[in-house]
Amino acid sequence: MSSEFRTNIKPIPYGRQHITEDDIQAVIETLQSDYLTQGPKVVEFERAFAAYVGAEYAVAVSNGTAALHLAALALGVNEQSRVITTPITFAASANCVRYCGGTVAFADIDPETALLDVDKVKQMLESKPKGYYAGIIPVDFAGNPVNLEAFRRLADEHGLWVIEDAAHSPGGYFVDSKGEKQLCGNGNYANLAIFSFHPVKHIATGEGGMITTNDGKLYNELLKLRTHGITRDPNLMEENHGGWYMEMQELGYNYRIPDMLCALGISQLQRADAGLARRKEIANVYDNAFEGSPGIEVLGTNPDAFDAAGETGHAYHLYVIRVEDRKGLYDFLREHGIFAQVHYIPAHTMPYYRGLGYGKGDFPEAEHYYSQCLSLPMYPTLTQQEQEFVIEKVKEFVG
């Protein structure tokens, strides 16, 4: 395919939302209803999303970062808490611990998958007395699901909680030791899981997030925390003065999400399976194109994410390759209208975390991965012609 293809077409981003006429009508109908915020669409979205991931409860919030913050608060993170997470993630996965005054303890990644390395976490835990660490926040990076059963086993042994950062992986799954599929966010192994509905994610609401759990006590705590720590449930109040009465029982936040965004989320959720299937098709085309290509390494999938039929539970929020001259390829693709992206700059190398004692060289696998990684365009509306052009240009540069 010739490069002339690009002359009259919009640039190709690494990710893009897909808004249909049904989405638009869903939002319009809500705008014309009696509720703009905290109306019936919030609960409808929560119930539909909980069913989608197989969890008992879901709490919709204003964004994925708010979801992480509330999850940490609900689990009691405070100034004495030390929490383990990965440096290869968006900063919010670590920042939520800092919001609560806790200490972030990074662990290195598995070089094959860029996921938090469970063996390195085990070494960290065994090097300290029980009680030293409070919890673990594994991340389903790029849509590649972690084996939460393995992290749950470690957590139970050392008395820890687990928050699954599943922002990249609605619809993803791993296969547990019994051969059963475990959907990301289903709550069977993590105390809480979080999702994001940023425009480049699988489900887009503009901004928005969700927390899922199977723990009714945590669910009720989250409902209070997202609304200033206030409850209107008479069964939870210390006293009741009448129908108007509410109680602020603790310090919470205004992390609510509007009804109109939930209406968009409900509409988007109805196409989630089709969108995920398309992402897997795109990944398969990339896989076949790059197989055996010298100088191009595709980021590996967690072996535990394949079922008995060989189907993958990878949700493909991102499609990541590794090349030696990453900066050169990044610039070359941009020159041709292909806006690939880097995910992520290791969190421990950021000035803020360096100021807390971390530095370059602390996690060599994460830093080596960062020096080579590039996320190629991956979204359901990516056309065959566009993808072929991306593949052509990657091979042209690397070749």
Rank of each mutant, 00 (worst) to 15 (best):
I137Q: 05
E297K: 09
T381D: 01
G54A: 04
E392P: 03
D307E: 07
A305W: 12
L222Y: 00
F174G: 10
Y344S: 05
G265E: 10
D117S: 13
K280P: 06
L276W: 02
E44L: 14
G172R: 01
T89A: 12
R98V: 14
T213E: 02
F290P: 06
T205W: 02
G206W: 00
D259Y: 00
Q123S: 15
S375W: 01
H198K: 03
I296D: 03
G243C: 05
Y189F: 13
R334M: 12
K120D: 02
G131S: 04
T7A: 11
G179K: 06
T65E: 11
P346C: 08
L276G: 02
A190Y: 03
N78K: 04
V298R: 13
D117M: 10
E164S: 04
C262Y: 05
D119N: 13
I109E: 09
S375A: 10
M248L: 11
A166K: 08
G208L: 01
M1N: 14
E392G: 14
A58I: 12
A142H: 07
E56R: 14
V53W: 00
I9H: 08
V53Q: 03
G135P: 10
E311W: 02
K327P: 06
K120Y: 08
D304R: 12
R232Q: 08
A55I: 00
Q182L: 10
A305E: 13
I257C: 14
A74Q: 10
L251M: 15
P294W: 00
Y219K: 11
G159H: 07
A60I: 02
A289D: 03
G187F: 11
A58D: 05
G399I: 06
N63V: 14
P11K: 13
I211W: 01
M210Q: 08
N78P: 01
D273H: 15
G185I: 11
M210D: 05
A366K: 13
H241K: 15
S293K: 13
F306K: 02
W244Q: 15
G209Y: 09
L236D: 14
R322N: 07
D34S: 08
K10M: 11
T30Q: 12
L356F: 08
I230F: 00
G355A: 09
D23Q: 04
I88Q: 15
A74Y: 00
H336L: 07
S3N: 10
L329K: 05
C373A: 14
D165G: 09
F363C: 01
L70E: 11
R16E: 03
I137K: 10
